[in-house]
């Protein structure tokens, strides 16, 4: 088989995977979200008989969507910020300080990922009741998400801290830099890609996390995932679920593209290569 033919086959396979995994689900979600309530999309039709934004308007006006959007897009950045803040000291210690058992400690920080999120959710819920903090559910969700996704933040930031070059720190000190100037000139350029990546991961995971939002927050706090699961479960309306799915996914894609640009501008070769 020639190289050209092999390339063609691989390209075709990639396109097929993209179609099956991305184009079809997205296409279906878009079509379902635009189905006109007056003309249902029945099984005997390939495409909806009529398209309109009625479902979008209806969801916006008659559901908890506005509150869910505000809640989700407030708690996710807060959870990302809190997770990063909590991860920083641990990542610094594991990335910069040499001590016996460091490699084992690096593995141990990943262990919480094996705990199912429902277990964490139940634990936080019972903790809130025990502490009498049931009125602080929003904060509890933020804190729970930050803790739950801490292993991602720590692991990413450890790698970033390991990328910080000792000679840059020493050069900064040699040139009389005080602590924060050393931080700006030697640490930040190497940490920036890691900070963006950790923020992105925690933000997206937090936006999509159903268990905590449902067990800890309901019924007072509505988040997009709990609304989505309600649409798919107890009051199953497929067009409404499609609208929510798109609302959940589209901002994430935009954020991902935005951070991808930022990551490119923080070219790691600049901070790790010669120079």
């Amino acid at each position: 088989m020639s190289q050209q033919r092999l390339n063609d086959i691989l390209l075709f396979a990639l396109l097929a995977v993209c179609v099956v995994w991305l184009v079809i689900p997205f296409g279906m979600a878009i079509l379902w979200s635009l189905v006109d309530p007056a003309a249902p999309w029945t099984a005997d039709r390939l495409l909806p008989p009529a398209l309109s934004f009625s479902r979008w308007i209806d969801m916006w006006q008659n559901s908890s969507l506005k509150a869910a959007l505000i809640n989700s897009y407030t708690q996710a950045p807060l959870a990302a910020a809190l997770s990063l803040s909590l991860a920083f000291p641990t990542a610094y210690a594991l990335g910069r300080i040499r001590f016996p058992g460091r490699e084992i400690a690096k593995l141990l920080v990943l262990l919480p990922l094996v705990v199912p999120s429902y277990v964490t959710a139940v634990f936080f819920s019972s903790l809130l009741f025990q502490l009498g903090l049931t009125g602080w559910k929003f904060g509890a969700i933020v804190f729970a998400h930050a803790v739950l996704f801490l292993p991602y933040s720590i692991r990413i930031l450890i790698v970033s801290f390991e990328q910080v070059r000792d000679d840059h720190i020493e050069a900064a000190r040699d040139l009389g830099a005080v602590f924060w100037r050393r931080w700006y000139v030697a640490y930040l350029p190497a940490l920036r890609p890691g900070i963006f990546a950790a923020t992105l991961i925690v933000f997206i995971k937090s936006i999509e996390m159903f268990a905590i939002a449902f067990i800890v927050g309901s019924p007072d706090i509505v988040m997009i995932p709990s609304l989505l699961f309600a649409s798919l479960g107890q009051d199953y309306v497929r067009p409404n679920a499609a609208v929510l799915s798109l609302i959940l996914v589209v901002p994430n894609i935009l954020l991902m593209l935005f951070l991808e640009r930022l990551l490119k501008s923080a070219n790691p070769s600049l901070s790790s290569g010669k120079g």
Partner: peptide, 29 residues
């Protein structure tokens, strides 16, 4: 400590700050 010592070191790796221009590198100290 080195930041308070009146010496200047030329590093084997040059240790130039990669995100700063030549001008900013010269100006940093």
């Amino acid at each position: 400590p080195p930041e308070k010592r009146d010496t200047a070191l030329c590093f084997q790796s040059y240790a130039l700050f990669p995100h700063l221009s030549v001008n900013d590198n010269l100006e940093f100290g």
